[in-house]
Every structure is written in structure tokens, then in C-alpha cells.
Write a protein that binds this DNA or RNA. Sequence first.
DNA 1: TTATCATTTGAGCATCTGTTCAGGAGTTCG
DNA 2: CGAACTCCTGAACAGATGCTCAAATGATAA
Lengths: 122, 122
Amino acid sequence: MDVATAPDIHPTMELDEAEAGATRERIVTAEEATQLAELFRLLGDPTRAQLLYALLEAGELCVYDLTETVQVSDTAVSHALRLLRTAGIVASRRAGRMIYYRLADVHVRMLLDLSREHLRHG
Amino acid sequence: MDVATAPDIHPTMELDEAEAGATRERIVTAEEATQLAELFRLLGDPTRAQLLYALLEAGELCVYDLTETVQVSDTAVSHALRLLRTAGIVASRRAGRMIYYRLADVHVRMLLDLSREHLRHG
DNA sequence: TTATCATTTGAGCATCTGTTCAGGAGTTCG
DNA sequence: CGAACTCCTGAACAGATGCTCAAATGATAA
């Protein structure tokens, strides 16, 4: 709000402003689109996607389990997990020497679920 | 079905086979994950994401309209649209000199919708 | 302690990506 | 026809990406 702090609708509001108000919930700004792109970008790698779908199915897996689901080194898996963890897509918990990973967000779960259905029945 | 065409469950089926049958719908193979990653990868770029969300809102836009929604050259927009078109994410139709683009798939629309909600209310 | 296990970190590097620039193709109009 | 308009294609290049290797960290066990 850089014009006025009044939250009520101004009676002399012009058409463009009225449209902007009505569509404020639908419109995705450039910044928002960029944030969403960042999320999609992290899902958009074969290794990371395999890890995420494995977690979607299993609920929780340690790094060793995850390395068995992909055909890259354990180091690559760790790098991939760090990206996902930093972005808040997965969460981890330590149990002894092992670290268990899980999907951190119900929305991510829905996204993976929906996309899987898209592939199957699209 | 590469073993037998019989749809009924074999009585001598082993445990592993039974599990495989039960989870066949849930399990995402490496190949499927790679396909899904390819989809996400295409959504995972700021320019392409902005174009897609603009199409989600407007329904249909010509290239010139689309160039106004992003801050790159019309050439870059054209390159981006080609990627999306080739992948079947958007569809186009010519009207005179202009070419109108739209989201090609209802699943993509759902994916964009869901992710937008994730950003807003997540 | 030392050894081993599970996982992470940083460096180096080949590959991929997205952009702009220059030019071309298809369409409409005078 | 030629000019103007809309959009696309190919080349070139800076920057990002994901991998492996080598080494380090944290935790358990001998």
C-alpha cells in the first residue's frame, strides 16, 4: 500500500482500480511466479523427483534407503536432499547414525499426488 | 501385462508379487519420476511460470500480450513458448498475424491452481 | 582410544539452460 | 508488388546445474 492506508474502497475508484481489486486474489505477480518457479525447479530433476516420490510412498526413509531408489552416488543424494531441505520441501530427523527424511509439507504431497494422477490418467 | 493376460489373481502368487500387485498403482517408477520431473522442470523457470500463470488468468493470450507480462525480449518469449508447446503444456491457434496461446491441459491448470494456493495459504 | 558406519561438505568439472542478437517466415494492407 | 506487423529460428555465449571425487563430521561399537 503505497498510496493510502485506508482499507475501504474509495467511491471515486476508477475501472482499472476496481478490476485490480477484484482480481487481487487471482493475479499472480512476477515475484510470486518466480517463487513458484523455484518450487517447481526443485521438483524438476529426475534424481530429486525419484527421492520425493519414494518419500511420498514410504513416508519416511533414511539416506541409505534413498540411495537405493536412484542410480547416483550417496554423495549426489546428499546434495539433492540438502537442496530440498533448505527449500523446506523435506524435513529430517536424526536417529542414531541415521537421518530420516520425510516430505515436510502437505501441499507438496498434494502436488506430487496430483501430478502422479496426471501421468497415469492424463 | 507382459506375463499373462489373465486379470485374476493367481492362487500361487508369492508375497513379493502380491505386494507388487497391491502397490502397482502407488509406486512411481524411475522412468515415471523422470517424466514428471520433465514436466516440473518446464514449470520451474521464472519466465515460463509467469507466462503460464498469465494464461491461467486470461485463458488465451497472443505473444505480444505475453511479452508484456515478462521482462525479457519477444524472442525469449517465443523460445519459452516453443518449449511449452512441444511438451504439450500449452496449445496455440493462429488468428491473422497473431498466434493465441492457451493452457492445453486441465491437469496443468490444476497444478498451477494448487501451487498458487500453496503459496498464498501455505 | 581406534574403527566403522551413515551422512555431509567443498572443490572441480562437464553439461545443460536461458538469454540476446541477427535474420527469416507467414500475414495483412496500401 | 513492397512495406509493416507478428512471430519464429539458429547461433553464440555467460551463467547455472548436477555429478563425482576426496575429505570431514557426527554417532555407535569394540
